[in-house]
Amino acid sequence: MSLTVPPALLEQAQQGAISEEDFLACVRTSLPYAWSVVAGTAEKLNANGGTVEINDDVPQNDKEWGQLFRMMASDSIRAAIERKFGVRLAFQNCCKVAAFAPDATAAYDEFTSMRAQVLNQRPELVDC
């Protein structure tokens, strides 16, 4: 399961639309490690005014890996976080999270290219 959904949020969703604020609170509570990685990366990018900020810290355990995978694999979670922080996110290998300024198309395209994926391979992460 990706998220631990509070009963009130589930009931709200069953009745219709939910607020992005409530959804993000659920994400933050359910995936605290992944939230800290992505939020910290986005905040660094916004603070330094650059075009890209990359976090390649390797998660320390399976729980952290799982949180990062679930967050980055979910289109709805990733899109909500991108809107919250005003960035575009990308994910490479199994732990490299990048936040891009919205207009940093060339840097985003390079990071997400097949070439970059091949060059980023590390033997210790083959079975991550």
Rank of each mutant, 00 (worst) to 15 (best):
L10D: 13
K84Y: 10
D127F: 09
G86A: 06
Q60H: 12
D57W: 10
Q15C: 14
D56H: 00
V97R: 02
K96A: 05
I81T: 01
D75P: 01
L24I: 13
F111M: 03
S19F: 14
K44A: 10
I54A: 05
E124L: 06
E21I: 09
V27M: 11
M114R: 01
S2Q: 10
E82W: 04
K96Y: 01
S30P: 12
N93G: 15
Q14V: 11
A80Y: 03
D62N: 09
C94S: 13
D56S: 00
D57P: 03
D109V: 02
E20D: 15
Q121R: 00
D62I: 14
I54T: 01
Q15E: 14
D103G: 00
P7M: 05
I18W: 11
A90R: 02
A47M: 11
E11K: 14
M71H: 09
V38L: 15
R88L: 02
M114P: 05
F23H: 14
E11R: 15
R115T: 07
A39S: 15
L89Y: 03
Q14D: 10
A79P: 01
S36P: 09
Q117A: 04
V27T: 13
E82R: 06
L119V: 04
F100Y: 06
C94F: 14
N48I: 14
A107G: 02
V38I: 15
L89V: 07
C95W: 05
L45Q: 01
D56M: 03
Y108Q: 04
V118A: 01
P102M: 01
L3K: 08
D22V: 14
T29W: 09
D75T: 07
E124H: 05
S2M: 10
C95I: 11
A39I: 11
G86V: 07
R122H: 10
A98T: 00
G16Y: 13
L45E: 03
A25R: 15
Y108G: 00
M72C: 00
L3Q: 08
L125E: 04
E82V: 05
N55L: 06
L45S: 04
F69Y: 04
V58Q: 02
K96C: 06
D22A: 15
G49P: 08
V58C: 03
Y108F: 10
Q12T: 14
D103Q: 05
A104F: 09
T41E: 10
S2G: 06
N120T: 06
I54C: 02
R88T: 07
Y108R: 05
A25C: 11
K84M: 11
S30A: 14
Q15V: 12
F85Y: 07
G50Q: 08
D75E: 05
P7S: 06
D57S: 12
A106I: 06
Y33E: 08
N61V: 12
E64Q: 15
T112Y: 03
E20M: 13
K44N: 11
A104H: 10
S74M: 03
R122Y: 07
M71I: 07
A116T: 03
